[in-house]
Each structure stands twice: as structure tokens, then as C-alpha cells.
Write a protein that binds this DNA or RNA. Structure first.
Lengths: 373, 373
DNA sequence: GTCAGCGCTTGAAACGATTGAATAAAGATG
DNA sequence: CATCTTTATTCAATCGTTTCAAGCGCTGAC
């Protein structure tokens, strides 16, 4: 039928008429001055004094003419761009999509527009984007960074320019930027508790890379629960992922480390992975080695990224409320924006959201064979 | 809505000094006029005549002062916003992430900023976002829509305002908007050819929903190959997904339909799904029914979304070059933008990208048992 | 009889850049 | 020496809005 684009198709002519309807047009056509039109259409404080009939007239004319305010011109005077920078460290990470959705949705409610930026985990790209966002005078900045390198520049440039910022999935060292995270410690606890309840006692762990801020608290939650439940963690069953900039490297790491664990011939009936991707890697390695999941070994992940419910077997995991986190970040920066507008002071805030255990098919009760406990 | 932010933390004061460095500052500080500064910093045509020493001076001062051009003010005169609208019909679809990456990357090369919009598959949301994008005077619009409803408004509003547009994963009926798609027919052919080469003869098919533009050509490719290879398609082994607005409904559909196929007791050694999600649903159903993939039944998908390589078993599929498609769309609209700038005419173009077969673990040679062929 | 207030509206100055036309000096041409 | 180019820079208008201070024609109060 059709193939490559051999077809000449339509020719777009640059139509000379660039008929934009400006506020002056509305003014002229309604018989009032631009000032009045502006006041009415923005429902500015002064609008209290405008006669209802006038308002009605102006609004009608504006609609009839199809007037659309010019965001740029408006900014020039009011300093409000109605846009927010949304910077990802790597949108490729499945963690990010629901967060993006949450942010988008939150901004939409306030008629703000998101300017999207993706640092590709590169510092210079991050800086260049920051530059561009500043040129576009975003009113706030949201940085999504679960898997990340540190960048202190952020703080300096932003608070100097008085731009509210919030981070998701990461905290600035120091106390200067609002942040939204999951309660990793509680999450670690939840996961291990689940396995323990199912009767598992010999549990392998693949810890997250040192570099990641999530790793330590998750492990802490695990240790705390283990201690309180009298569960012994066998160091020979604990491995730690290496640092990496590739958000999908967890899969590879989970695979390799699980292979290694299996070869060690140390028996374990459950495996707890740092995150979902690692868990999926682990499952593949187990399956390949002839260990059935969950019959012979339970596996639990962390995050509940979108694909976790689709994998085979579907993954038991600790859910981060990603969309809600995106939404919350929007609320936080909006609060900052409004405070700035009203010349109030406001507080930086740091949130730890509650994780939730999602039980699916990759875990089941331990088979009691011999002297397990 | 807030929870555990017990810590009072830092108080952000609205620093009264909003010390923005304007072009006038650079002019004053360098001893030249704003006009000269503008000409130099933009490397405008007139810059040919500016003395090298002057250029150097101005550039130095600009850098020293940390001057950053104000995108809005610039727009007001030059009509160039350096932004592009990027509208998704549903970012939740795993198809979208690589496309977004491709677009982002393409725009970044040209120092354009993407304004992100997600219609959530809702018409009114689409229209509202279109409105917002127009208010922000994006120079072009890219619409990503694999799973979609038709909207004719787009054409009217855009070409009236002379904004270049391109669609990805979908074509406007009529010939008015550029588009980038995969060659679905070739893809369908590739997939079936693969199964045929592996010796499969009894093949089940789950076709895509009627609503989707991709469905028909994929099926056509299948039929054409079947005919040319003398392969018979058993109508009892062909099902078609219902229309739906949920991009992830394919999984559910694949699961249910495959269950049904299995129950029909019609033997098949391979299954070809409309897309990857459908394929994953199918695999789950097969596994649950005790049919091993790929040992007892091969499964092939379409798209190669990011999770396809991570599933168990990893999925053999037909890859769409999603990132490249995003990039191409950027090139197309940029061409349009430049043409408009130079008051040239230019051509709408429609591209069909070549798909690529990716062979992974969900397919293997058919077991020849009895009289298969 | 002046003044303050009222209800409604507007004039005009920004905002920070770009740009076509103008200026000015220096060198080239006849 | 007058005129024309070329080079180097600037003037001033403009883009579409917001916003402050002011204006209007009144009324009622001091």
C-alpha cells in the first residue's frame, strides 16, 4: 500500500496573515480600554469595582473573538510564567513514569505547564537544562532523582533566584530543599516481615548500591526487624550491588548475584531484592537454575514499578506511592510559589510517604523440610 | 493531606533583592548600547560588522555578570519561544517512554525546551492542553498517540496559527499533518515469518482492536505472508481484542483470550499477539494452564517495549525504533519551523520506519510430533 | 464652599529584549 | 574635493500585557 515517504503530499504555505487577537483588539471591539479588559479577564483585585455589565460585555467579546492571552507578554509584566521545570535524572527508569504522571496531573489542576528535562544522568546535561529552565523563568523546579549523582550547584543557583524546589526520591544533603521520599526503613521492614510470616528463615539479600540513598535505610529496616523477630541474617547470603549509573543495571546485577548465590550451595528459601528490577533479574537466574519461583524460593522486590504486576510470576513487592509522591511535590512547590507571591515566609518540608506491601505470586509459604528453624 | 513533616526546618525568606541581570546591565557595564549587546550575543546578521574586540568585551562582561537572556522578553519581539509542545495521549503506555526520550534528545540538540502534556485519553483534557500550549506559543507540536481517539480540531487550530505539527504512532486522516509510524505490515510479516521458519504451522492469533490504526496493517502483513508461504490460518484460532481506552488493557485481554483458546482444545504450537502486553498476558495464561513457553508454545509480541527484555521468559518481538521515531518527529517539525522562519514553503511528510525482529526466549523451533505439516 | 469618598474606568509607564533605519567615521573612487 | 562604500555602532519603536496612580462626575459631610 504505502511505503517510504516518496509522496510529495501537501505543501504548507506560510500564510502571510498571522492574525493573532490581542487584548487591544478585545478592548477596541468592546469599547473599553486595555486596562479594563486586563482587569476583568484576570479577575484582578480591581475587578471588584468593575460594573457587572462591563464584565459581561468584555468576557463575551473576548470569547467571540477567540482571544487567548499571551503567556510571554503577561510574564514580562507580572513575572509569572505559569510553568514549572520538571527535571528527571533518567526518564528511562520505570520508577519515573508514574511520578511524571503525578506531577503532570498536579500541575494541570493549577493550570501550570511542565517543562520537561532529562539529565541522562550527566552532570553537564543537568546544568545545561538548569540554565534553560532559568531562561524560561520557571516558577518552580521539581527534581526526580532516585538513581543519582550529587549536585550541589542546584541549591546555590536556585535559592539565589528565589525559585522553590522539591526533590522526589532523594534528599539534598543539608536542609535547604523540600523533598518527598518513601519511608525506606518501613518498607524494608514490611518486606522482611512478610517473608518471615510466611515461615521463611533462610533468606538471601541483595542490597542496593552504596551510592543510592535508599540502600542504607532499607537495610536498616531489615536489620531492625530481623533483630526484633530473632531472625538471623547469614552474611554468606548477603550481597551488595555495585554502584552504577544505569537504572536498568539492577536487572543484570540481580541476575549475576543470584547465579552466584545459587552456586554457593548455601540453601535459602527466599530472596529479598533491593528493587523490582533486581528481583526480576533474580527470578530469571533462579528459573534458569531450575529453582521454581515461588515454589522453591520466594522473591520480593521494592518499588512496584508498572511492570511488576505483568511479570511472570507477578512480583510481590513494596509499593512506593509514586503518583502521589509526584502530586505532593507539586503541592509543596505551589505552596512555595504562593508564599513568594504574597511575600510570606514558608517552611521547607521533608516528607516520608508510607510504603505498602503488595502481595502477588512471587512469594508463598515456606515448605517446612527438616530442621528449618 | 500532609503527614509526618514534624521538623520545622529551614525558613525560606523572600529575599527582597531580585537581582536579575538584564541586557541593559551588560550594556552599561561594557560601555556599549543594548542594541550592540543583543547583536553580539545572538550573533545576528549585523554581527559581521562588529569589531572583534567589541565582541570579546561584551561576551566577557556577559559571562562575568552571569547574564542570562530572558526567553519571554525575547519572544515578545522575535516571536520565537524556543519551546515545543509534546502531547501524549497516555504516558502510562510503556510505548511512550522511549519515544519521549527520543523527542527530548532531539529537542535538546536544538536548545528547544519541551512542554509536556498528557491527555489521559480524554478529549477535553486534550483540548485544554492545546489551549495552554497555544498560550505559551510553542513553535511546534508533536502528538504521540498509539492508542487513541480521533480529534479533528487539531488540524483546524494549528494550521490556522501556522504551527508545524507531527504525529507519532498515528496518522491524521487526510494529508495535512506529518507523521511517523512503524511499517506495521512489514512487522506483521516479520513476526509470522519467524514463527514459520521455526516450523510452526498451527498458529493462534490475537489481533488488535479495530479502533487502533495499527491493527489492520499488521493483520494484512500476516495474511500476505501466510498466503505467500502457503500457510493456512485457522479462523478458530483467531481472536480480536475489543476496543478500549486503557493502554494496559492488552495484558488483560491477552490473558483472557488465551485462556479461551486453550479451553477450545484446538491445538496450536505458537501464538502471535497484537503487542507485547498482549503477549505477556498470553504467556501468563499459558503458564497457568500448564503450557510451557517456549517449550510447548512459542509466543511473539510486537513493539519491544522496555519491559519485554526483562520478562520471564524474555519476549521475542518486533521492535519499533521508538527513540528514533521520536527523534525523527523532532527533525520534521524543526524543518517546518525553519521553513516558516525563512518564509519558504515545505512539505508535509509521512514516514514508515522499518521494524526489526528481536529474537529472545519466548520462541523456539516447533516440536515435530506426528503429522504436523 | 471645600474636601473626602465613592464607583467605575483609564493613561501611561513599565517589563527585557529585537530590529529596521539612521548615524558616524574611515577608506576608496573618480 | 565631493561622493560612494564599508565598517561599527546606536536610536527608537515595538512586541502584548499588567499595574499604579489618577480621573471622572457625583454625593454627602464638615
Amino acid at each position: 500500500m504505502m511505503m517510504q515517504s516518496e509522496t510529495p503530499l501537501l505543501v504548507k504555505r506560510h500564510s502571510g496573515k498571522n492574525q493573532t487577537i490581542t487584548m487591544r483588539d478585545v478592548a477596541k471591539s468592546s469599547g473599553f480600554s486595555p486596562a479594563t479588559v486586563s482587569i476583568v479577564l484576570n479577575n484582578a483585585p480591581l475587578a471588584r469595582y468593575i460594573a457587572p455589565a462591563t464584565k459581561k460585555r468584555i468576557e463575551e467579546v473576548a470569547k467571540k473573538l477567540g482571544y487567548r492571552p499571551n503567556a510571554m507578554a503577561r510574564f514580562l509584566r507580572s513575572k509569572r510564567s505559569h510553568s514549572v521545570g520538571v527535571m528527571f535524572f533518567d526518564i528511562t527508569d520505570p520508577f519515573c513514569t508514574p511520578v511524571l504522571r503525578g506531577i503532570e496531573n498536579g500541575l494541570y489542576q493549577s493550570s501550570y505547564v511542565p517543562i520537561f528535562a532529562d539529565a541522562h544522568n550527566q552532570r553537564n546535561r543537568f546544568e545545561r537544562y538548569l540554565e534553560m529552565l532559568l531562561e524560561h523563568h520557571v516558577e518552580a523546579l521539581i527534581v526526580v532523582a532516585n538513581w543519582l549523582f550529587v549536585d550541589i550547584q542546584l541549591l546555590a543557583d536556585l535559592s539565589k533566584r528565589n525559585i522553590t524546589a522539591a526533590t522526589i526520591g532523594w534528599e539534598m544533603p543539608g536542609n535547604d530543599v523540600s523533598s518527598v521520599m518513601v519511608d525506606n526503613e518501613a518498607g524494608g521492614r514490611l518486606a522482611l516481615e512478610h517473608l518471615h510470616h510466611l515461615g521463611h528463615r533462610k533468606i538471601a539479600f541483595i542490597r542496593g548500591p552504596k551510592m543510592l540513598i535508599d540502600s542504607a535505610p532499607r537495610w536498616k529496616g531489615i536489620q531492625k526487624f530481623a533483630h526484633s523477630a530473632g531472625l538471623e541474617i547469614d552474611p554468606a547470603l548477603v550481597l551488595q550491588l555495585p554502584d552504577s549509573f544505569d537504572p536498568n543495571s539492577g536487572f543484570e546485577g540481580g541476575y549475576r548475584f543470584t547465579e552466584e548465590l545459587v552456586q554457593r550451595k548455601k540453601r535459602f528459601t527466599a530472596l529479598m531484592a533491593f528493587d523490582d528490577l533486581t528481583a526480576l533479574g533474580a527470578i530469571r537466574a533462579l528459573t534458569k537454575a531450575g529453582v521454581k519461583v515461588p515454589e522453591n524460593c520466594s522473591v520480593v522486590g521494592f518499588d512496584d514499578v508498572p511492570l511488576s504486576s505483568l511479570s511472570a510470576p507477578s512480583l510481590t513487592t513494596v509499593r512506593q506511592p509514586l503518583e502521589a509522591m509526584g502530586n505532593l511535590a507539586v503541592n509543596i512547590v505551589m505552596e512555595g510559589v504562593n508564599a513568594g507571591l504574597e511575600k510570606r515566609d514558608w517552611n521547607i518540608s521533608r516528607h516520608k510517604m508510607n510504603p505498602e506491601l503488595v502481595i502477588r505470586d512471587s512469594t508463598q509459604a515456606a515448605v517446612l523440610s527438616g530442621s528449618d528453624d
